[in-house]
């Protein structure tokens, strides 16, 4: 099918591996799903620290299960991306290791304290939920199918993240102050989570025309702000002065002053050129290389198991 026909037929779960699809579509879908899968891995990378820090046995179990879910999501998503026939999982993992794989802006910032747990597990994941919910109607059927399971599990994560926030904000003044400071630092990144304004988005138009995305960045951000600003306030958090966000009673929308956000940092991150991205990616590469010997010995073992059959 050519691109024009594809655009006409585009709709929720419209295309599957049975269809003969133009390269532009397969590449765009691969880029999007690979980004999503990479983000699960790099998000898990941050989240795993909360398992060690968790201040109760039940919380610890929830944290370790969450990291496992994230790796499970990465597995599903890499598979959904592979079905497009553009790249193998190995290639995508190698790209991530080499610093060529892209992932969500928020996961380029290292975390080191429990006060950051609700930033990642409630706000960032809450944002991710919004986006993922709309992707259940993406045009690439294997991606939409993966979203069914991912969204179900993310629901538990966000609930746990919210509970961590509720607990912290209901505890000592010192804890509340630390959460507020952490929120001040994270909030601009979280607002940027949905990417640049529509006019600056490179891939948005095409992705929407072919049904990969059903909702624009701005619409997603709007829905997120509508849901999460009241929640932040409910737990006693105050929005920092910048970026300026005004609620317009008339339109029922939050008007964001885009220029208050550091887009230069955002774009540096998007290219993996941010100083701390290099730390995150480099640390992952070191870890991945440290167990390269295991993958090699698995390959050797599989080959040795196949030899007798090959001789038949």
């Amino acid at each position: 099918m050519d691109l024009e026909e594809l655009k006409e037929r585009a709709g929720p779960r419209a295309f599957s591996p049975k269809d003969d699809l133009p390269e532009e579509y397969r590449k765009a879908a691969t880029r999007m799903i690979q980004f999503h899968a990479n983000s699960e891995v790099m998000g898990g990378y941050l989240d795993k620290q909360f398992t060690r820090q968790a201040p109760s046995l039940d919380r610890k179990l929830a944290c370790t299960a969450k990291v496992q879910d994230e790796i499970g999501h990465a597995q599903l998503l890499y598979r959904a991306a592979e079905t497009l026939g553009v790249k193998t999982r190995e290639e995508m993992l190698e790209e991530l290791e080499r610093g060529e794989g892209k992932f969500l802006n928020c996961f380029h910032y290292p975390v080191d304290s429990w006060y950051e747990a609700p930033m990642i597990d409630f706000f960032v994941d809450g944002g991710a939920m919004r986006r993922q919910a709309t992707l259940k109607a993406t045009s690439w059927e294997p991606y939409a199918h993966a979203m069914d399971k991912v969204c179900f599990e993310e629901g538990f994560h966000v609930k746990h993240g919210e509970d961590i926030l509720r607990e912290l904000m209901g505890s000592s003044r010192a804890n509340r102050e630390r959460v507020q400071e952490t929120f001040d630092e994270w909030w601009p990144r979280i607002v940027q989570f949905f990417g640049p304004p529509n006019k600056d988005s490179k891939h948005n138009d095409f992705a929407q025309q072919v049904g990969l995305k059903t909702t624009s960045n701005d619409e997603l951000r709007q829905a997120f702000l509508n849901a999460y600003i009241p929640k932040a306030e409910k737990y006693g958090l105050e929005l920092p002065d910048t970026p300026r966000i005004e609620y317009d009673e008339h339109s029922g929308r939050y008007e964001l002053e885009y220029d208050d956000l550091d887009w230069e940092e955002f774009w540096t991150i998007a290219k993996n050129d941010y100083e701390r991205s290099a730390e995150q990616i480099g640390s992952r590469r070191r870890r991945h290389e440290a167990v390269a010997w295991v993958r090699e010995s698995m390959d050797a073992w599989e080959t040795s198991q196949e030899t007798p059959q090959a001789a038949d």
Binding site: G44, T64, V67, I71, Q75, Y78, R287, A292, V294, M298
Partner: peptide
């Protein structure tokens, strides 16, 4: 977690 040799062994 996240450091295991493959996704499957991690899980």
């Amino acid at each position: 977690q996240i450091y295991a040799p493959t996704i499957e062994s991690d899980l």
